[in-house]
């Protein structure tokens, strides 16, 4: 059994991974994007810079982006493990990682407008714990930047302006609208996590959980898979491009989940994740052996 301090150490490692090493599927998608852009174009230069940056960060174990974002943890744990201990370990790990410059002091108290200085505050990080049958712990972490978080959007169907009804076509219209409105502001090319159904809170949470899916992951539900592929293709025809400079590479992936809704409500929640799609996953056994998943 690991002590809370040992758990904290493991979680600092997960944070280090997420902040400095971009998952290989994201790097591959960015390379494909670069190769598709015209030689000498602003889009290509931006992607070259992005790829160079990823190499530098990874080699030196330095943060890929200075906005190290909100740490969002999803943890599966064995029966009987204390979620209070895990949550406290995540919070302490954020403070320690901030002390090591793996994270920027990124938490502000909105009442006093003071930066807490150590990266942690109520609600930062967010920690979702779920019990499962395995004796191992599985941790997934996303560092979600502020610029792209500002590009998130929530729609209520029906939406007259978009001619969007309460069906998958309506969902498609909302997501494409959100991508167009985001332009390059969320540091495109981005990854879209979305959810239809749920309430205003759960819809956004599920949209973010969708971002845990690797880019090549296909939706097992055929209609939603088709929707994901279609939005991916259409959004890359809008010529928004990397950083909104114009170009073919606007979105790298679209991941859509759904939740039950009330008869009166139909929400479409869209989360925009920047190209710095910092995702880390680790499976940790009771004796502390780590297997990296992302």
């Amino acid at each position: 059994m690991m002590s809370p301090q040992e758990w904290t150490q493991k979680l600092v490692e997960v944070i280090a991974h997420a902040s400095t090493q971009l998952p290989p599927d994201v790097v591959e998608a960015l390379k494909r994007g670069r190769d598709a852009e015209v030689e000498g174009s602003l889009a290509r230069k931006a992607l070259d810079s992005i790829l160079h940056n990823i190499e530098l960060a990874s080699g030196n174990w330095q943060p890929i982006c200075q906005d190290t974002g909100t740490p969002l943890f999803w943890i599966h744990h064995p029966i009987g493990m204390s979620t209070r201990m895990l949550t406290a370990a995540c919070e302490e790990a954020v403070r320690q990682a901030t002390g090591k410059q793996l994270l920027r002091p990124n938490a502000v108290d909105p009442l006093t407008e003071k930066n807490t200085g150590h990266g942690q505050a109520p609600g930062i990080p967010t920690v979702h714990c779920e019990e499962w049958d395995s004796p191992d712990v599985e941790v997934h972490l996303i560092l979600k930047g502020g610029g792209c978080e500002n590009c998130g959007a929530q729609y209520t169907l029906p939406n007259a302006a978009l001619k969007a009804d309460r069906n998958l076509e309506g969902v498609r219209r909302c997501i494409l609208d959100a991508i167009q409105k985001a332009q390059g502001k969320g540091c495109s090319p981005g990854v879209i996590g979305a959810c239809f159904g749920g309430d205003r809170g759960s819809g956004y949470v599920e949209s973010k959980r969708q971002l845990l899916r690797p880019l090549p992951d296909r939706n097992p539900i055929p209609e939603i898979d088709a929707l994901e592929q279609d939005i991916l293709e259409k959004s890359n025809q809008l010529d928004i491009g990397p950083m909104g400079f114009g170009g073919k590479t606007t979105v790298l992936g679209v991941k859509i989940g759904h939740l039950g809704r009330l008869p009166a409500c139909y929400f479409v929640s869209v989360s925009y994740m920047c190209w710095a799609n910092r995702r880390a996953g680790a499976r940790i056994t009771a004796d502390g052996t780590v297997t990296w998943l992302d």
């Binding site: 931006a46 810079s49 160079h52 943060p63 982006c65 200075q66 930047g145």
Partner: peptide
């Protein structure tokens, strides 16, 4: 280029001075 924190940090050759560090914190 947004997010290219390392490429751009390498282009910063020197930190000359800083204003309002105590009041605003490092990022601000």
């Amino acid at each position: 280029v947004g997010g290219t924190a390392q490429v751009l940090a390498q282009a910063v050759t020197k930190v000359e001075q800083v204003f309002m560090l105590k009041e605003f914190g490092v990022p601000e």
